[in-house]
Computed example of a mutant assay.
Amino acid sequence: GAARGAEGVRSASRLAAARRTAAGGSVKRLSAPQPRRFTGRATVMFAVLIALALAYTYPVRVYLDQQADIERMEASQADQRRRIEDLSAEAAKWQDPAYIETQARERFFMGKPGETLLVVLSDPEGAARDGGKGAKPGPPKPPDPWYDTLWSSVQAANAERPDK
């Protein structure tokens, strides 16, 4: 039965070829028919894949943003822990009486009873001025031009922030 069906197809194509040659003479085929590039099934699959890719882009972006937020918060938390450790170490230093004494001497120029404190200042200009060897007074400085005064007032007004 199958051989007969195949033979029937062959004979039908022979008959069609015979009709073509009889109608127009000899038929010369120039090129083989090109198969379709995309079948309907391939086109639907491509459309579904595009739709899935578009559907997943927003959740993936949200996920990546959340991961970046988590990393930023973890870094902030590590900085805060480091700051807490530094402050704890500083607080532990202030429990030591010797450290307190050293800080009082350095910051407030305090000394023990009976000690004479000596503060050395390094100000050569002030020493020259106090010694009478100050800079010679020169000609008076000319006043600023009007546009410099205007510009400085604009900058000062810009620097002020109104209380809200």
Rank of each mutant, 00 (worst) to 15 (best):
V44G: 08
Q77I: 09
Q95G: 09
I100R: 15
D123K: 02
I50Y: 03
D86F: 07
E115C: 10
W94C: 08
G111R: 02
R72G: 02
A127L: 00
E101Q: 14
Q95M: 11
A47V: 08
D123E: 03
G134F: 02
V48F: 13
I70F: 10
R107N: 10
L117N: 03
V48Y: 10
F108A: 01
A78E: 05
I84C: 06
G126P: 01
D96A: 12
R107F: 08
I84P: 00
I84M: 12
G138M: 03
R61C: 13
R61Q: 15
I84Q: 09
D130H: 01
L52T: 07
A127G: 00
A75H: 05
V120I: 06
V120S: 00
L117R: 02
M110Q: 15
M73A: 06
Y58Q: 07
E106R: 08
R107W: 09
D69S: 15
A55F: 06
G111F: 01
P137L: 06
E90H: 11
K93V: 07
M45Q: 15
S122C: 01
Q103M: 11
Q77P: 01
T57D: 13
L49D: 14
A51L: 08
P124C: 00
Q67L: 15
A92W: 13
Q66H: 15
D69R: 15
W94A: 09
V62L: 12
K112M: 09
R105L: 01
D96T: 04
A91N: 13
V60L: 09
A89N: 12
L52A: 11
R81C: 06
A92E: 14
S88I: 10
I100N: 13
P59Y: 00
A78C: 05
L52V: 10
R105K: 09
A92T: 13
G131K: 02
S122Y: 02
E71F: 15
A55M: 10
A135G: 04
T102W: 15
Y63E: 14
P97T: 07
A89P: 04
Q66M: 11
A135T: 03
A53H: 11
Y58N: 08
A51V: 06
A128Q: 04
L118G: 10
Q103Y: 10
T102C: 05
G131C: 01
A78I: 02
V44R: 11
A91H: 13
A53S: 05
G132D: 00
F46Q: 14
A98D: 06
M110D: 14
E74G: 02
E125K: 04
D86C: 07
E101A: 05
K133R: 04
V120N: 02
E106W: 03
A104S: 14
Y58T: 09
K133S: 02
L52D: 05
S122T: 02
L118T: 15
D69L: 14
V62I: 12
R82L: 05
K112G: 10
G131T: 01
Q77N: 06
P113G: 05
